[in-house]
Amino acid sequence: MDEHTISDTLQEPVEAGLQGGEESLNLHEKPHLEAHTENLNEVRKPSCNKILLTQLNGTGYCFNANDYMTIRKDYRITGSFIGTNHVKGYVRKSQKLPVEFNEYEMQLLLDENIAILVSKKEAFERGADKKTEEEILTKLEERILAQGYALNEKKIQETIKNINRVMEGKRKKLIQSGVPAKDIKLSEDQVIQEMRSSMKFDRNNAQLEIPNQCLYNHEAQVVSFQGKDTLGYEIFRDIWKRGNVYVTLGGNFGGNFLIYPGDPLVFHASHVVHVLQNPVIQPLHMISKCRLTVNVNKICILAYKNSENDIRYQTVHWEGSKDKLNIASCKLKNDRSSDEDSDG
Rank of each mutant, 00 (worst) to 15 (best):
F63Q: 05
F63I: 07
N64A: 06
Y61T: 06
P46C: 01
Y75D: 00
Q107F: 03
K50G: 03
R76N: 09
I114Q: 10
T84F: 03
T84W: 01
G58C: 15
N113I: 05
Q107S: 08
Y90E: 04
L108N: 06
F63D: 10
S47F: 10
C48A: 13
N57Q: 15
T84M: 09
S80G: 03
T70V: 05
I71M: 02
S80E: 14
P46S: 09
Y75M: 03
Y61V: 09
N102S: 04
T84S: 04
I51E: 02
E122T: 05
E122P: 02
C48L: 12
C48H: 14
C48Q: 08
K88Y: 14
L108A: 15
E105N: 05
E112F: 04
N113L: 10
L110A: 13
K88M: 11
K45D: 14
T59Q: 13
E103D: 09
V99R: 00
F81K: 13
V118E: 05
G83E: 11
V99H: 03
K93A: 07
Q95G: 01
K96M: 11
G89R: 12
F101S: 03
G58E: 13
Y104S: 06
N113F: 13
N49C: 07
N66M: 04
F81I: 07
S94L: 06
Y61R: 10
G58N: 13
L110P: 09
K88S: 11
I82H: 00
P98W: 01
K93D: 13
E100H: 10
Y90W: 12
S94F: 07
C48F: 07
L109R: 03
K93E: 13
L52A: 08
T70L: 03
C48Y: 11
S80L: 09
I82W: 04
D67H: 10
L56A: 15
T70G: 02
L108F: 15
C62I: 00
G60E: 02
D111S: 12
K96E: 12
N113H: 15
P98S: 05
V99Q: 06
Q55M: 14
L109W: 05
E103V: 06
D67G: 02
A115C: 15
L109H: 05
Y104I: 03
S47K: 08
I71V: 02
R76S: 05
G83L: 12
T84G: 01
T70H: 00
V99M: 04
G89I: 06
K93I: 03
S47V: 11
L56T: 13
G58Y: 09
K73A: 10
E105A: 11
N57C: 15
L56S: 14
S119A: 12
L108K: 02
L110T: 07
L117G: 03
L109P: 04
K96G: 01
N57L: 15
K96N: 03
V91L: 09
P98K: 07
R92K: 09
Y104F: 14
N49K: 14
